[in-house]
């Protein structure tokens, strides 16, 4: 363990921990924009700078390893001025159209502007004007809002191992783009959207729903594969507005294309909304009331049982439904009808 002092408070951290991690352990709030604890430190936004005794100039706490007896200061007039200037510089090259921005309310830049009480910027000047349009059903990109934090590039490379996007050009004209500015070729996991701190990356499926007000959040579990990722469903009225995942779960907030974007089926207009009965063999399925349908199912099952014995009846349970449903289903067959003819289709 390493002992150090941050803002006059002693703290102990594991060897290899960064100053930022040590500060967070003390619940000291250091602003960040390009940092994500799930990715390698980057040190690009310069907001997490701190002063360390013995070092000639401020250093980024996200990249600096904590060392024994280090003395760290996270708040000073000088640090505050540098952080404020950095945010102002970002705002000087940002549309600042929060009112109509899809990222509003979930935007770190907006929060930083609020924190430093910045309505505008002293540094008006040229702004980037990107006109790239991405043709794909999931990822919406508004590059003028990109703060070049590099999170999307890093998550794609470090976590997803895909490397679908990278940097191009230099200096003020730097931008993030697929290799050789070609069409985006990716797995559409949306990890980049999840880590984007501004409205630069968002989901195309989100459009048309409120951003914050009126959305309800429900924590649940994905219904696709056996990974069992935790999902947060953001619903609005009768629809799912978007799906996200919290960082502090076993899937660490990462999802795949199906989990993140494959939810439209829930509100498909092809959903079954009423029981259907085929009243005679060869006839067609016709709507029926629940009473009629349930009575029919129960009476026919009992009928077959009484004529041919319980083993003339079988049940196929779902590997897609809940434990409770599976349990009650097999119980119904075993205890209710008296057969062990119950299986599931997961072998396919």
């Amino acid at each position: 363990m390493i002992s150090l002092t941050i803002d006059n408070q002693p703290v102990e951290v594991e060897a290899g921990a960064t100053v930022l991690e040590a500060a967070r352990k003390l619940r000291i709030d250091i602003p960040t924009l390009c940092h994500d604890s799930r990715l390698k430190p980057h040190g690009a936004c310069r907001l997490c700078i701190v002063e360390i005794a013995g070092m000639p100039k401020p250093v980024t706490s996200c990249t600096t390893p904590a060392t024994e007896k280090m003395v760290v200061t996270t708040q000073s007039a000088h640090l505050n001025r540098l952080r404020k200037t950095t945010v102002e510089l970002l705002l000087s090259d940002h549309p600042n159209d929060c009112m109509i921005c899809i990222g509003s309310g979930d935007c770190k830049l907006q929060e930083l502007a609020y924190r430093f009480n910045l309505r505008g910027s002293r540094f008006r000047g040229k702004m980037r004007a990107h006109d790239r349009i991405d043709e794909n059903p999931f990822v919406q990109r508004d590059q003028n809002k990109c703060v070049l934090c590099g999170l999307c590039v890093r998550v794609c490379e470090e976590i997803q191992g895909v490397g679908a996007i990278g940097y191009a050009n230099r200096g003020f004209e730097s931008k993030i783009t697929p290799p050789f500015e070609k069409e985006l070729s990716c797995e559409f996991c949306g990890q980049c959207i999840a880590v984007c701190p501004t409205g630069a990356l968002s989901g195309k499926l989100w459009v048309g729903y409120p951003r914050q007000q009126g959305l309800e959040k429900t924590e649940t579990t994905c219904s696709y594969c056996g990974c069992g990722c935790n999902l947060t469903l953001h619903t609005y009225g009768k629809s799912i507005a978007k799906v996200t995942s919290r960082q502090d779960n076993h899937n660490r907030g990462w999802l795949c294309v199906k989990g993140r974007f494959g939810y439209e089926f829930v509100t498909s207009n092809e959903r079954l909304t009423t029981p259907l009965i085929r009243r005679q063999k060869g006839g067609s399925l016709e709507p029926a009331s629940w009473e009629e349908a349930l009575d029919l199912v129960a009476s026919r099952l009992l009928d077959i049982k009484s004529k041919h014995g319980p083993d003339a009846v079988g049940g196929l349970a779902s590997a897609r439904c809940t434990n409770e449903e599976g349990y009650l289903f097999q119980k119904m067959f075993r205890a209710g009808i008296g057969t062990n003819n119950v299986d599931h289709c997961a072998r396919y």
Partner: peptide, 10 residues
Amino acid sequence: TLKGLYIFGE
């Protein structure tokens, strides 16, 4: 010999 089958979610 199996005359009635109840399938859910598959």
